[in-house]
């Protein structure tokens, strides 16, 4: 009973014993006949040397036992590194395929504007956090209020997942949208939306940077009743103030959040990979 058990538990040891024995036997077979010895001039054994079975079996033990462990270890590490690198390559490829050819020249430049409290607002205010920038004007009949409500829903949903995004509303109508007007207007929407306005030329410049269609005439009086044409996109910006993604009217309460989360996750993964490079 005990014997059976021990052979069960240590099969490898027993295998090795058997192998050792058989080798010893075969060597004895070889060396025991002197006629054979002379027919093998290229034998590794020194001529007239003793059979050193102990040394032989020690070598064998190393090559079968430890070598297998070493091989598995090296192979395992190699496999792990290979898989790791492959995953990184796949990620990189996925990002590049999504980016298409070249990075679109949207935003990223310098600008000097003022927020709804009259404080300066520049490209520096986009650093260190993700931002969602929307261009509109307070006197917008139906689309901007809808989109700003949608933005509020997105912000709430993102906050639930602990994702903070800085919402920015830049007016395309600087003649009427003075800071106090924006402040009043944005009080109807989600808390924390930063209203941004500025001089006519500065607004024209930032609209150009973000490829926003800008048709506001220069010499309108603030008391005139007119509409401003503008393109409708949310611009997702990364913590370096660089453009990530434009979200159009096709996104609803859910798909917009999914898109933003995807983009932010990808950005963070790419960022981690860059930091992890150790070779």
């Amino acid at each position: 009973m005990i014997n059976v058990r021990s052979s069960f538990v240590r099969p490898r040891m027993i295998d090795q014993e058997i192998m050792k024995l058989s080798l010893v036997q075969s060597q004895r077979l070889f060396t025991s006949s002197p006629a054979r010895k002379s027919t093998k001039p290229l034998s590794r054994k020194p001529i007239g040397g003793n059979d050193d079975n102990n040394l032989r079996s020690a070598n064998l033990e190393f090559s079968s036992g430890k070598a297998i462990i070493l091989c598995v270890l090296v192979g395992g590490i190699g496999y792990y590194i290979f898989q790791n690198e492959k995953h990184k390559m796949d990620l990189k490829r996925e990002q590049e395929s999504k980016k298409g050819y070249g990075k679109p020249q949207i935003g990223g430049g310098r600008f000097t504007l003022i927020d709804h409290n009259g404080n300066p607002f520049s490209e520096q205010n986009l650093l260190g956090k993700f931002s969602l920038i929307y261009f509109g004007f307070s006197h917008c009949p139906d689309i901007c209020p809808d989109e700003l409500d949608l933005l509020g829903v997105w912000l709430d949903k993102l906050k639930k997942d602990n994702i903070e995004v800085q919402p920015v509303f830049i007016t395309c109508d600087p003649a009427r949208d003075k800071p106090e007007v924006l402040k009043e207007y944005l009080s109807d929407f989600h808390d924390g939306i930063i209203g941004v306005t500025g001089e006519y030329d500065d607004i024209k410049n930032i609209c150009k940077q973000y490829r926003v269609y800008f048709s506001t005439p220069q010499n309108v009086r603030p008391d005139q009743d007119y509409l401003v044409d503008h393109s409708i996109f949310f611009y997702l910006m990364d913590p370096q103030g660089q453009f990530m993604e434009a979200l159009g009217r096709n996104h609803d309460e859910n798909s917009g959040v999914i898109r933003i989360k995807d983009q932010i996750r990808q950005y963070k993964e790419a960022d981690n990979n860059d930091n992890k490079k150790w070779f």
Binding site: Y185, D223, Q224, D225
Partner: peptide
């Protein structure tokens, strides 16, 4: 700030809030 108070063709009753 009433934008349209001076303008003859605009609606004086309209206030731009929700």
């Amino acid at each position: 700030i009433p934008f349209f108070s001076n303008s003859s063709d605009s609606n004086k009753d309209f206030e731009n809030n929700r």
